[in-house]
Design a binder for these strands. Structure first.
Length: 278
DNA sequence: GTCCATGTTCTTTA
DNA sequence: CTAAAGAACATGGA
């Protein structure tokens, strides 16, 4: 459930609870969530201190005090939460990491664990090699992408703009919800060929993407079913969706029924009137 | 039983 | 050879 705003929220809630703490793997019930499969997570993490937690695209990147790094991808149903060690682990908890006390004095939060659970197991942990970039093959961050650069990237493909925006190599971090919401705000039909957009349209799209993502981050992401931040809290943006998952309901701008089509194998929602012009 | 789901990657087709 | 389309992955809920 994690697109950029959700991952950003997880990182924001995770960082203050993890930076400076030491790690000890307490349970790895399914080692097939770790890539490469040769990475011995318990050995690699034992006693290491977390130096930083950051986001790149939809990846949550951990930096350790020995210079090693790994990232977690939440897939569709992944959750990364910090909880009291004596609280029962929910079903599908694949990895449990005991957190040591913070280094200077900290004190607060002994007996805590970092848990990774993921029923569908599309997510997992990726251990990075010494010089391996955390974002190989990944496009730029949409929040800092300039319109001219977006135009250039969209000009490189004939696919529908909706499909192109879902491609993490074009722009990193957008998913099905926020592409639909951004295209609605930009008043662009999802089936328009990416390379056919005019400069004004790309300008609108660029602004719409940034506005949509910032709003969603401010509301701590969208919870459709599984998404939770590191504290276990749901997001609040789902009630503000303009078109996503609103097929048949009136457009919030013009009252026309929101349409649903399938594009790139994903359900796609748009207003046939506000986003007309194929 | 059927269809659908916030994602990515591999395979097949054009 | 390359780009695009489609299937596959695993689980649960409606």
């Amino acid at each position: 459930m994690p697109e950029l705003p959700e991952v950003e929220t997880v990182v924001a809630t995770l960082r203050p609870r993890l930076v400076g703490r030491t790690l000890v793997v307490a349970g790895l019930s399914r080692d097939d969530i770790v890539t490469p499969s040769t990475a011995d997570l318990p050995a690699l993490l034992a006693g290491r201190r977390v130096v930083d937690v950051s986001r790149r695209g939809k990846r949550i990147v951990f930096a350790l005090d020995d210079g090693c790094r790994f990232y977690v991808h939440l897939g569709m149903t992944g959750q990364l939460t910090v909880a009291a060690a004596d609280a029962a682990a929910p079903p599908h908890t694949h990895l449990e990491i005991k957190l040591g006390p913070a280094v200077p004095a900290g004190g607060s939060g002994r007996g805590e664990v970092l848990r990774f659970r993921d029923p569908r197991r599309f997510g997992g942990v990726w251990w990075l090699g010494p010089d391996e970039p955390a974002d190989r093959g990944m496009g730029p961050e949409p929040l800092t992408l300039r319109p001219a650069a977006l135009a250039l990237r969209l000009a490189g493909t004939a696919r529908a703009v909706k499909v192109a925006l879902l491609d993490q190599a074009v722009v990193a971090g957008l998913g099905n919800i926020y592409v639909d919401e951004s295209l609605f705000l930009a008043r662009i039909h999802p089936l328009r060929p990416a390379r056919g957009l005019t400069a004004p349209e790309v300008g609108r799209l660029s602004r719409a993407i940034k506005l949509t993502l910032r709003r969603a981050i401010r509301h701590r992401g969208s919870t459709l079913r599984d998404y939770r931040d590191a504290d276990g809290n749901a997001g609040g943006f789902q009630s503000l969706h303009r078109v996503y998952d609103r097929a048949g309901e009136p457009c919030r701008a013009c009252r026309t029924a929101v349409a649903r089509i399938v594009l790139g194998g994903r359900s796609t929602h748009f207003c046939p009137k506000c986003q007309e012009g194929l």
